[in-house]
Design a protein around this nucleic acid. Structure first.
Lengths: 144, 144
DNA sequence: GTTATTGCAAACAATTTGCACCCAC
DNA sequence: GTGGGTGCAAATTGTTTGCAATAAC
């Protein structure tokens, strides 16, 4: 989804980004923050509609907005769907290629290294994703 | 880019079973290896069918097998489709949240760090994914 | 009043699956 | 001959989009 709106100009100047989240967007963010684990959009939708009336499309659109604001990050689960979590959780996982189970890393290696990212281009980093793949203990043995 | 074959990679190759790849699986892997960039399954399919007769489903199935073997890794592109690349390419990207463009990192930070991943569980790591998200230079200015 | 957001449902697109055929061993 | 791999097409499913109603400012 490329953005070719170069000709479009905003009359209002957003010199400092104030998120300005709508109620629904805030609700989405709130649910993500109170969850201990990453949620798929559909799961999120399920939780939200217990609290209020909301449409699935709105959830997706809210997630898109939140990602653009750098407030939410996503990783893709083994089954193809995207899993979303608030970025302040610098969480990373080890995922087993065999059984698909994920194990939470108790420490983020990248966080340490003061982000010495050598860039060929200027870039403002909001957050990062990091995931390790391999085999968990049980699966190393009973390999099909 | 330089070849640092002296330093040991933190990524472990699968030591169990021989790959035993079928012709098609090998073809898929070969194409991925000769590509400079990650490919979606559909792109892969397009390239492959120029060389030989193959079905789309086979491409997907081959990718699944190769991932299970620890030979191929996938990241999800901004538009939702999965992008696949051979794991020996320790490539990582910066992706702009605004325009969706990806920039190749010229160096893997995780690769350096002797990867003392403190695990709460025993786990055999094959490879990792790492991706940074934020705003590219142009998009930092024309922020919506 | 003007503009952005929402909800619904239809539309999309990537991926998966059922099943018959075929190849490798 | 048996079992797995393959291809095709249909079926699934996560996600996006068009548009009218609605809420925000």
């Amino acid at each position: 989804m490329k953005n070719d709106s170069l000709s479009q100009k905003n009359t209002t100047r957003p010199t400092h980004h104030l998120p300005h989240l709508t109620r629904n967007q805030q609700a989405v963010l709130a649910v993500l923050r109170q969850q201990s684990d990453a949620l798929s959009a559909q799961e999120l939708y399920g939780v939200l509609r217990e609290q209020q009336a909301i449409g699935l499309a709105t959830v997706y659109r809210a997630l898109e907005t939140l990602k653009l604001q750098g407030l939410v990050q996503s990783r893709s689960g083994t089954n193809g769907e995207a899993l979303h979590s608030p970025i302040e959780q610098d969480r990373h996982y080890l995922t087993c290629l065999h059984c698909g189970q994920s194990f939470l890393l108790d420490h983020c290696p990248v966080h340490d290294l003061a982000v010495q990212v050598h860039l060929s281009v200027p870039f403002k980093i909001y957050y990062h994703t990091l995931e390790f793949f391999g085999l968990c203990e049980p699966c190393t043995h009973q390999r099909s």
